[in-house]
Each structure stands twice: as C-alpha cells, then as structure tokens.
Amino acid sequence: GKELVLALYDYQEKSPREVTMKKGDILTLLNSTNKDWWKVEVNDRQGFVPAAYVKKL
C-alpha cells in the first residue's frame, strides 16, 4: 500500500520542484531516500518537502 505522511508545519514551496502543504495535511510519500527532502504527492502534484516538516503515519 501507499505510505502516508502527516504535515507537522505549513510549508510554502520555494522552487518548482517543491510543493506547498498545510499543517495537518496527509500526503502520499513517494520517496524518502534523501534524509533532508522527501518526495510527496499532494492534490495530484508531486514534489519535495523538507523531511523535518513531515512524519510517517
């Protein structure tokens, strides 16, 4: 099944490779191999968020 993460904080994208999320959002985790930036999918968009801003559910 898909792995989900919870947004712990708001995050505003700073580049086209990133995505914006709001605290409390549930996101689909696509890739967590990089310890600093995790790739997630939110609202049919894929991009990176800081790993410290999310936690695995």
Rank of each mutant, 00 (worst) to 15 (best):
L30I: 15
P16N: 10
L8C: 08
E18H: 07
L8F: 04
S15M: 08
Q12I: 14
E3P: 11
A51F: 02
S15T: 12
D44M: 12
K56L: 14
D36F: 15
P16H: 10
K35L: 10
V49G: 01
N43T: 10
K22Y: 12
V49E: 01
V19N: 04
L6K: 08
K55G: 09
K35R: 11
E41G: 08
T33C: 13
N34D: 15
E3A: 12
P50L: 03
N34C: 11
Y53R: 07
K14S: 10
E13R: 12
T20G: 08
T20L: 02
N31V: 08
L30G: 01
E13C: 12
A52P: 08
A52E: 11
M21L: 09
K2D: 08
D36S: 10
V54P: 02
K23E: 07
K22A: 08
S15L: 09
V40K: 00
L8K: 05
L4N: 05
K22C: 11
A51V: 06
M21S: 00
A51N: 03
R17Y: 14
I26A: 03
L29Y: 01
R17E: 14
P16R: 10
E13F: 06
Y53V: 07
W37I: 03
A52F: 09
V54D: 01
K35Y: 08
L27K: 00
W38N: 01
K55T: 14
N34E: 12
A7V: 11
K22S: 10
E18F: 06
A51C: 08
E41H: 06
L30F: 04
T20Y: 04
V49D: 01
L30D: 02
A7E: 01
G1A: 14
G24Y: 05
L6E: 11
V5R: 02
L29D: 00
G1M: 13
N34T: 06
Y11H: 04
E18W: 04
Q12D: 15
K39E: 14
K22I: 08
S15V: 05
V49C: 03
L57I: 15
K22N: 08
F48Q: 03
Y53A: 14
T28V: 15
T33P: 04
G47L: 05
E41W: 07
S15D: 11
Q46G: 06
E18V: 05
Q46P: 07
Q12A: 13
N43K: 14
F48I: 07
D36T: 13
T20Q: 05
K55N: 07
D36L: 13
Q46R: 11
A52G: 12
L27H: 03
Y53P: 02
A51K: 06
T28M: 12
D44P: 06
S32G: 11
W37A: 02
D25M: 14
D25F: 04
L8R: 05
P16E: 13
I26M: 07
L4E: 07
T33N: 12
Y9D: 07
R17G: 15
D10V: 02
A51G: 05
W38A: 03
Q46A: 11
L29R: 01
L57T: 07
